[in-house]
């Protein structure tokens, strides 16, 4: 079984574009391609997702929008198998990353999650130092090389546009940072393990406009190296930062198109009514 997992991981790695070793410190993991085929989800008897097909291109930002309870977060959490822990969860259909199904029995979920980082609504730094927060993922992976860890911590903090603000206080508690800095720290922590996909579940909903703008700018830059999916209730945010927008309603994908099209002339009346604030 262990061997099988190793092979699977190798396959997964080989599918990811432009993977280079960290030592070069010029690594760009490259975004992954995501594909969902006829995906249905139940929580006990409740049918939360009702047969969704979707293809997400690498190195794009896709916004999931829709009223609360429409299934967008459930759908997002399928990509890193976070719903597996929810009691009564059941799924049908296929989700593939770079062509590999991630719900096969032989897939090592922990390895999968190294490829798929996630940022949540509220910043959730560990009660540790700034440095330890970012290094945490690497250490639990068994990496002991201090020089390598230092390099990755710096790179991740730079990518998250936080390095200049914290470089002289890396030993300071992460909890002493502002909300916006904490969220960027969480993004850095995610980036340190070099994923190829970033899932963001309302990452700025608890932040002020300045911090939100910084995160949005950051997301825009990260697109060059990652495939990003963001769940947001903020229509302006979806229209500002995403390339594609998917509108969910009652567990169905109502419309999925280029963001410019969705926000100027959507095909479906339901989409128009939602984005113009007429319902939801």
């Amino acid at each position: 079984m262990a061997k099988e997992i190793e092979i699977t991981m190798e396959e997964l790695k080989s599918k990811i574009k432009n993977t280079t070793t960290f030592e070069e410190d010029t690594s760009t993991s490259g975004g992954s391609r995501i594909e969902a085929k006829d995906v249905k989800v139940w929580y006990d008897d409740f049918n939360a997702i009702k047969g969704i097909d979707m293809k997400i291109k690498p190195n794009t930002i896709t916004a999931f929008i829709g009223p609360s309870g429409c299934g967008k977060s459930t759908f997002l959490r399928l990509f890193n198998r976070m719903n597996d822990y929810v009691e009564g969860f059941r799924m049908e259909g296929k989700i593939k990353i770079n062509g590999d199904s991630i719900y096969k029995k032989k897939v090592n979920v922990e390895e999968l999650r190294k490829e798929i980082g996630m940022v949540f609504q509220k910043p959730n730094p560990f009660p540790k130092s700034i440095y330890e927060n970012v290094a945490y993922g690497l250490k639990i992976q068994g990496i002991k090389d201090k020089k390598l860890i230092d390099g990755r911590v710096e790179k991740a903090l730079r990518q998250a546009d936080l390095w200049e603000e914290v470089k002289d206080n890396l030993k300071k508690s992460a909890l002493a940072l502002s909300g916006g800095q904490q969220q960027r720290l969480c993004i850095a922590r995610t980036l340190a393990v070099q994923p190829s996909i970033l899932l963001m579940d309302e990452p700025t909903s608890a932040l002020d406009p300045i911090s939100t703008a910084k995160i949005e700018e950051l997301i825009h830059h990260l697109k060059e190296e990652y495939t990003i999916i963001i769940v947001t209730h903020n229509m302006q945010q979806a229209s500002r930062i995403s390339d594609y927008t998917a509108f969910f309603y009652l567990g169905e994908l109502i419309e999925y198109d280029k963001t410019r099209k969705i926000f100027t002339n959507p095909e479906k009346k339901q989409t128009e009514n939602y984005i113009t604030g007429r319902f939801g």
Partner: peptide, 9 residues
């Protein structure tokens, strides 16, 4: 109102 779609048009 930050109008979009039909409202913006």
């Amino acid at each position: 109102n930050n109008p979009v779609a039909t409202d913006l048009r």
